[in-house]
Design a protein around this nucleic acid. Structure first.
Lengths: 245, 245
DNA sequence: CGCTGCGTTGACGCCAATCAACCGATGTGG
DNA sequence: CCACATCGGTTGATTGGCGTCAACGCAGCG
């Protein structure tokens, strides 16, 4: 983190990628200064999404990717019969909308779980720019690939873990991502309901609630509504890695 | 399908993308003739993978993507404690290896389920070429995005469907992909074991076997070892879409 | 103040996992 | 060629984990 005070910029409203404190987590990662400045010009629009509102919905035309600046999102897909499944939770610096590239329509909903702000990245222009700048192209490909790898991890979780392991893995994943954003690794506030956690983990909300209570009884964490304090991170890790040892 | 006999080409061994019968399913989809010829030069190597052998393994360095020419693959990820999860089955025209882009190492194994052949696509050169040709860039992005969308569908399956629905959805997906490759929509030969199907669907092999038997009893299909004949496709569809109507 | 949404907890039931036996197909070496 | 081992698959009996149903508590809010 280089000091932002070395040059004082008079851009209180427009926050550029090049000076964004998320640039090490987001699309700009690894870009050179000239590339960054071009990216700045591409990403000019910002959009506020109120808590509960959708950034996009399945079926909407796809034009842009979105980088979360502030706030918290969930994405979910639904089957014809109404069943739906939360496929992910996104926080600052993470990209939304890549599902839309394949058919030029979004295939899932992205809903803000708190008042949020996103940077709008017009996709056609991103493709143009990434034909000019190898680093940007490379970084974008890495981000898409990372999403695929993440999804495979979720499949492993859904396909082969039991309730306790799923919730432990979920909490560890959340705290790790929060920690890399400068937050405490032990205290967190859940932005989503038990039902949304359950949907993501393939469990019912009652099971999520019971498992939280069990973790509390076992001295792994303290639960007060959505406020969680992890008191035994290693205990959680043991749950995930070696359920039988 | 334009007739391949209009111009007789003397390339019995080297099969070019431009004349490959999979080009409408694979990376070349939608490319113009000049683009196709450049792609031909890029994709020159082929590789045979014997049944049971790995095309790559988790941890291997990433250099290339692979397009399945003939044969059948599974990909699987494993947890530290040895549990593993089949994340997909790939057939002719489908791309393997995109998991490796994010960290320059593969994060899953790709294993041939029968003697197979793949086209090797050096990734650095693919990136170079896709900086020149918009259509190729666009097509590659669509393929990665399609993989993400597919993964979300699997999450929905794993997170919210019961055993019968999972297997029905799996069979319908397989037959649909086989059909788009010119095979019968009703008769298929499974390339994978009950255990591999179970791993993919988050079920134990006994449950897969029992569910096959149940489907047979219900007159939905005929099972003879790995040979399946679907006799009531609509019945399967009803199982997937409206479990309660 | 009652309403509503979210969370917790208990009782019970069911679906799929587990454990186990058995079968057929395939392959192998004496 | 056959005895034997191995692997994949089927089926049955039983168990257990999680879903279902229901009651209740609590916080926020009009």
């Amino acid at each position: 983190m280089t000091s932002p005070t070395t040059s004082i910029r008079i851009e209180p409203l427009k926050v550029a990628c090049s000076s964004c404190n998320l640039r090490e987590l987001c699309l700009p990662l690894g870009l050179s200064q000239p590339d960054l400045e071009r990216l700045d010009r591409l990403v000019d629009a910002r959009r506020h999404v109120a808590r509960g509102a959708a950034l996009f919905r399945a079926g909407d035309g796809f034009h842009s990717l979105y980088a979360v600046r502030t706030g918290f999102f969930k994405t979910c897909v639904s089957a014809e019969d109404g069943r739906d499944q939360v496929t992910g939770f996104q926080m600052a610096g993470e990209l939304l909308g890549m599902d839309g590239i394949s058919t030029d329509r979004h295939s899932c909903d992205a809903v803000a779980l708190e008042d949020s702000q996103v940077c709008v990245i017009p996709f056609a222009e991103l493709e143009d720019l990434s034909r000019e700048f190898t680093d940007l192209q490379r970084q974008f490909h890495k981000i898409m690939s990372r999403e695929i790898v993440r999804d495979h991890g979720v499949m492993l979780l859904l396909g082969s873990m039991r309730a306790e392991e799923r919730l432990a893995a979920f909490l560890l994943n959340l705290t790790q991502r929060l920690q890399s954003r400068g937050f405490s690794p032990s205290a967190l506030v859940l932005r989503m309901t038990r039902e949304e956690i359950g949907s993501y983990l393939g469990l019912k909300l009652e099971t999520v609630s019971r498992t939280f209570s069990k973790f509390q009884d076992d001295g792994l964490l303290e639960v007060k509504q959505r406020h969680i304090r992890i008191t035994d991170q290693d205990g959680l890790r043991r749950l995930v890695n070696g359920p039988n040892c």
